[in-house]
Computed example of a mutant assay.
Amino acid sequence: MKKILLVLMSLCMLSSVCFASMADKVNAISSYTGETKKVSILLDAPSGYAASEEIVDMVQTKADEMFPTPKFLITPFEDSQMMKTIYREDNGLSTMPEQWASSFGQALKSTDIQAIGKSLNTDYILFIQVSDSGPNYSHSSSFIPIPIFGSVSSTKATTNVTCNIRVMDVNTGKYVVMKSTTRSGESSSTMVGGIGSSSPSFEKVYLEAIEKCLFELDIDTSKL
């Protein structure tokens, strides 16, 4: 019974914090007397990145940090991604068929990004282009002279992920902020006596690398 009461009290406290945070944001927006600018996010990357909930969450969290309310209003991520897909289809631009690949189709030009931004009726585009070097593998094995163990083998996968991030003023079509960063990620697996995993998690490799890229980005949007 005590555990149940503790859980209920914790939930109440969490709800109070969430409501307080929302109230602060609403109050900040209502008291803001300047012009609120709309920002749309375009994530141009292989399908593995664009479809990963973890990566999308990281991108949106970084966007919220870079473009704080009430000065900026970030439009729904799904809307901008859909508009980008429609634009690629209508203009015969190749899409990104590979789940994880260094080559992910025809890159969008600045005129393409501006056209998508105008279709979204937004003021700024946060354009994030993600590419990688492809996975590199290294293997090692050893033998333990104990019958129950036998051989031990391990495999490590590494890759370098590059994030090119630009902020475009849709009205002028000019980039007002540009930043590029490259970071590595790795994942490993181990088999002992034929038991265990023979291949590392590719998703973990890319998640680790892109998390480093986004975490280290420092972009000042206060003058926009």
Rank of each mutant, 00 (worst) to 15 (best):
K2P: 01
K2T: 08
K3P: 01
I4T: 14
M9V: 15
S10C: 11
M13G: 09
M13C: 13
M13L: 14
M13F: 13
L14M: 13
C18V: 14
A20P: 00
S21F: 14
A23G: 15
N27A: 15
G34A: 08
E35T: 15
E35G: 04
E35Q: 10
V39R: 01
V39Y: 00
S40I: 01
I41K: 01
L42T: 04
L42V: 09
L42Y: 00
G48Y: 03
G48I: 01
G48T: 07
A50E: 13
Q60E: 14
Q60C: 06
Q60P: 00
K62I: 09
A63K: 04
T69K: 03
I74N: 00
I74H: 00
Q81F: 02
Q81N: 12
M83Q: 14
T85F: 09
E89W: 09
L93M: 15
L93I: 14
M96V: 03
S103Q: 12
S103V: 14
G105F: 08
S110L: 05
S110H: 02
T111L: 05
T111V: 15
I113G: 04
A115I: 03
G117D: 05
S119M: 12
Y124T: 03
Y124R: 02
L126G: 00
F127R: 01
S131P: 00
G134N: 03
P135I: 08
N136A: 10
I144M: 14
F149R: 11
S151E: 12
T158A: 12
T159G: 11
T162W: 07
C163H: 03
N164C: 04
V167Q: 01
D169P: 01
G173I: 07
M178Q: 10
T181H: 05
S187Y: 12
S188G: 10
V192F: 13
S198K: 06
S199T: 15
S199Y: 13
P200F: 01
P200E: 04
S201C: 13
F202Y: 12
E203A: 15
L207Y: 07
F215V: 05
E216S: 07
L217C: 14
D218T: 09
T221G: 05
S222V: 06
K223H: 13
K223Y: 11
K223A: 10
